[in-house]
């Protein structure tokens, strides 16, 4: 995975993808498969399903490459959103009974999450986002919860969800912008 393809520019990958050249998909896989698989696995917590969803994700990227618009977001964001939506759809399909999920389960999942220690900024991130903020981001971003569903699950007022989400996003913005 750690080969020179990691340094290929997104614009080159996009150009290959848009001209229906499979090399583009191969380069994209080398560069972002770990990120996509990480998100998918984080959502599904199951290797077999995660691998299937990664395959679905790659197919969707391949089939929808002509719709990608770089002016609306970078390639990572676009592909991660595809991966995230595919994984959340799969999770719902398997009748994830998320309303029955307890707050303990959510925090446990968060603690157990296999975080790639080499990813830049993770330590800072983990230090700067408090546990409540992490849970909010986790539920909304990785599980596709709405704010009211988060409020229901965590048994906190929706106003608190909004303020924690706002604080969390601001932290993320500071960290990654």
């Amino acid at each position: 995975m750690n080969n020179q393809n990691l340094h290929i520019g997104d614009e080159n990958i996009v150009r290959l993808l848009k001209s229906n050249n499979k090399d583009g998909l191969s380069l994209l896989y080398d560069k972002y498969a770990a990120a996509l698989y990480g998100v998918i696995h984080r959502i599904l917590q199951q290797t077999e399903a995660a691998e299937e969803v990664l395959q679905d994700t790659m197919l969707k990227i391949w089939n929808n490459a002509e719709k990608y618009d770089a002016s609306k977001g970078n390639l990572l964001t676009w592909t991660i959103n595809i991966a995230r939506n595919a994984a959340i759809d799969r999770a719902r399909l398997k009748s994830f009974s998320r309303r029955n999920e307890k707050i303990e389960d959510v925090s446990n999942q968060l603690e157990e999450a296999a975080i790639n220690p080499e990813t830049i900024g993770v330590k800072e991130l983990m230090n700067k986002l408090n546990k409540d903020q992490k849970i909010i981001i986790d539920l909304i971003y990785f599980k596709g919860y709405t704010q009211s569903e988060v409020a229901e699950t965590l048994e906190i007022p929706i106003g608190t969800v909004k303020s924690r989400l706002y604080a969390a996003i601001n932290k993320l913005r500071e960290l990654f912008s």
């Binding site: 191969s26 896989y29 996003i169 913005r173 960290l175």
Partner: peptide, 27 residues
């Protein structure tokens, strides 16, 4: 757009390499 990209960077912190054979299987 910035928020989305910040979130995707955050998501990247959970990077997990799939098993090596998977690439060939998928492609």
């Amino acid at each position: 757009r910035r928020i989305q990209e910040a979130l995707s960077q955050y998501a990247r912190s959970f990077e997990l390499a799939p098993r090596p054979e998977l690439k060939r299987e998928i492609l």
